[in-house]
Design a protein around this nucleic acid. Sequence first.
DNA 1: TTCGTCTTCGCAAGGACATTCCGCAGGTTC
DNA 2: GAACCTGCGGAATGTCCTTGCGAAGACGAA
Lengths: 153, 153
Amino acid sequence: MSALDAIDLAIMRTLQDNGRISNAELADRVGLSPSACSRRLDILEKNGTISGYHARLSNKALEYKMMVIVHISLSGQFAKTLTEFETAVKLCPNVLVCYLMSGEYDYILRVAAKDLEDYERIHRDWLSALPHVVKINSSFALREIIDRPNVGL
Amino acid sequence: MSALDAIDLAIMRTLQDNGRISNAELADRVGLSPSACSRRLDILEKNGTISGYHARLSNKALEYKMMVIVHISLSGQFAKTLTEFETAVKLCPNVLVCYLMSGEYDYILRVAAKDLEDYERIHRDWLSALPHVVKINSSFALREIIDRPNVGL
DNA sequence: TTCGTCTTCGCAAGGACATTCCGCAGGTTC
DNA sequence: GAACCTGCGGAATGTCCTTGCGAAGACGAA
């Protein structure tokens, strides 16, 4: 895998903000001919530098108005305990993000819900059912300030 | 804005996972002619249901190997205090997510860094420089379990 | 029922686009 | 200098996107 040069970065930066523009326009923006641009993009996709393209859906339109940050503690840190918890948490479609953490809590989750009633259902049917959990702490987001898909290059 | 029917949801679901396929293939997958599909997609984009398309860049390739969750408390909850903090935090390119929260802390941030040294720089140059902050608590992610762009439909 | 309207479909056409091949230029190695 | 490698632009061809148009179904009012 060769190093990324300035044009590669320009391609990535452009597609990061506007992932569905045509190859012709992409080429124009980064100052390359369409053929050269197509070749470089092909390489970036094949070697995994660009790992995919995703439509961003409006949470408002989908009526997911509520974002909840959930801190979770488990009963132990044994490998089997962690694996079982992680296998279970992956099945919940409302969990957008889950990290194993250092510090006070074992896991931190970002959960999307339509409203309080919906979150009550998620909490009851999914979160409370996760194995080895000894403590769940839900914090509700009052307002979204930033939500970027990637680091600004 | 009319309600979303099953075909609209199929379009959204498809583009959520594969945001750069051609309109012809999209039409094929959702069982519509290309023209009808193009028209529906146009509506979904114009009314904001689909708010954008983003290339997902490999954090590995970009060498962002470290994810940090930062809890922040401010010196007060006055509107002016919050506004000044939010204006400042938006400028830091490493902050991927920022929410105003209920509960113990005022804000929660998700910060991407290349390594510990890089995070030390971000903490020193950006986070510590944010106005009205009285407490910063950084928790490091040990492992990523889930990172979805949207709720599974 | 019957008519008018509204919506959304499929089809067709022409203009734009993606991809591949080819030749060229610049740099490197022997 | 010659052989080689890399990455570019231009041209060709097959595909795709878009727009206009007519038809079919849903729905409400007369």
